[in-house]
Simulated scan of single mutants.
Amino acid sequence: MTTATESVTVNVRPLADRVLVEPAPAEEKTAFGIIIPDTAKEKPQRGTVVAIGTGKKDEPLTVKVGDTVLYGKYAGTEITVEGREYLIMRESDIFAII
């Protein structure tokens, strides 16, 4: 995962209203300090936008690169680029910018 000062350059350019999101890492511990095994980890529903398309003709995109977003549990398609995991999804799959 990248830090706020580290920029991500990806050689993927989403088309139309699609965005490329880097998912946040899954939680390692519960609030009480119990370590969660890999087999029981929930898929994250939060991530950072790393690339955006141009939007539709009459509908510009509202998210921008660097936004932290919430999306549906099964939203998007998982892809691997240069050894990193990303999700590519339509902007309509994004619920909120946080």
Score class of each variant (00 low, 15 high):
residue 10 V to T: 11
residue 10 V to E: 11
residue 12 V to C: 13
residue 12 V to D: 10
residue 12 V to A: 07
residue 13 R to F: 10
residue 14 P to V: 08
residue 15 L to K: 13
residue 15 L to H: 10
residue 16 A to M: 06
residue 17 D to N: 15
residue 18 R to P: 00
residue 18 R to H: 12
residue 19 V to L: 04
residue 20 L to F: 08
residue 21 V to M: 04
residue 21 V to E: 01
residue 22 E to N: 09
residue 23 P to M: 00
residue 24 A to L: 10
residue 26 A to V: 07
residue 26 A to W: 08
residue 27 E to R: 07
residue 28 E to V: 13
residue 30 T to V: 07
residue 31 A to F: 11
residue 31 A to Q: 09
residue 32 F to A: 15
residue 32 F to N: 11
residue 33 G to M: 09
residue 33 G to Y: 06
residue 33 G to A: 09
residue 33 G to Q: 03
residue 34 I to K: 15
residue 34 I to R: 15
residue 35 I to H: 12
residue 35 I to D: 10
residue 36 I to H: 03
residue 36 I to S: 02
residue 36 I to M: 05
residue 38 D to K: 15
residue 38 D to Q: 14
residue 40 A to H: 11
residue 40 A to T: 06
residue 41 K to E: 00
residue 42 E to F: 12
residue 42 E to R: 15
residue 43 K to T: 15
residue 43 K to V: 14
residue 43 K to C: 10
residue 43 K to Y: 07
residue 44 P to G: 02
residue 44 P to Y: 02
residue 45 Q to A: 08
residue 45 Q to M: 13
residue 45 Q to G: 10
residue 45 Q to L: 03
residue 45 Q to S: 09
residue 45 Q to N: 12
residue 46 R to W: 01
residue 48 T to M: 13
residue 48 T to K: 15
residue 48 T to H: 11
residue 49 V to P: 04
residue 49 V to D: 01
residue 50 V to E: 07
residue 51 A to M: 07
residue 51 A to G: 10
residue 52 I to A: 02
residue 53 G to K: 01
residue 53 G to A: 01
residue 53 G to S: 02
residue 55 G to L: 04
residue 57 K to H: 10
residue 57 K to T: 13
residue 57 K to Y: 07
residue 57 K to N: 04
residue 58 D to V: 05
residue 59 E to D: 14
residue 59 E to H: 12
residue 59 E to G: 02
residue 59 E to P: 01
residue 59 E to F: 10
residue 60 P to A: 06
residue 61 L to I: 04
residue 61 L to Q: 08
residue 62 T to K: 14
residue 62 T to F: 03
residue 63 V to G: 00
residue 64 K to S: 14
residue 66 G to E: 09
residue 66 G to M: 08
residue 66 G to Y: 07
residue 67 D to S: 06
residue 68 T to L: 04
residue 69 V to R: 01
residue 69 V to C: 09
residue 70 L to I: 12
residue 70 L to Q: 03
residue 71 Y to H: 04
residue 72 G to V: 03
residue 72 G to W: 01
residue 72 G to K: 04
residue 73 K to T: 12
residue 75 A to L: 05
residue 75 A to V: 09
residue 76 G to D: 12
residue 76 G to P: 06
residue 76 G to E: 05
residue 77 T to G: 05
residue 77 T to L: 12
residue 77 T to N: 08
residue 78 E to R: 14
residue 78 E to S: 14
residue 80 T to F: 03
residue 80 T to N: 12
residue 80 T to A: 07
residue 80 T to P: 01
residue 81 V to S: 13
residue 81 V to L: 13
residue 81 V to D: 11
residue 82 E to D: 15
residue 83 G to R: 06
residue 83 G to K: 05
residue 83 G to D: 06
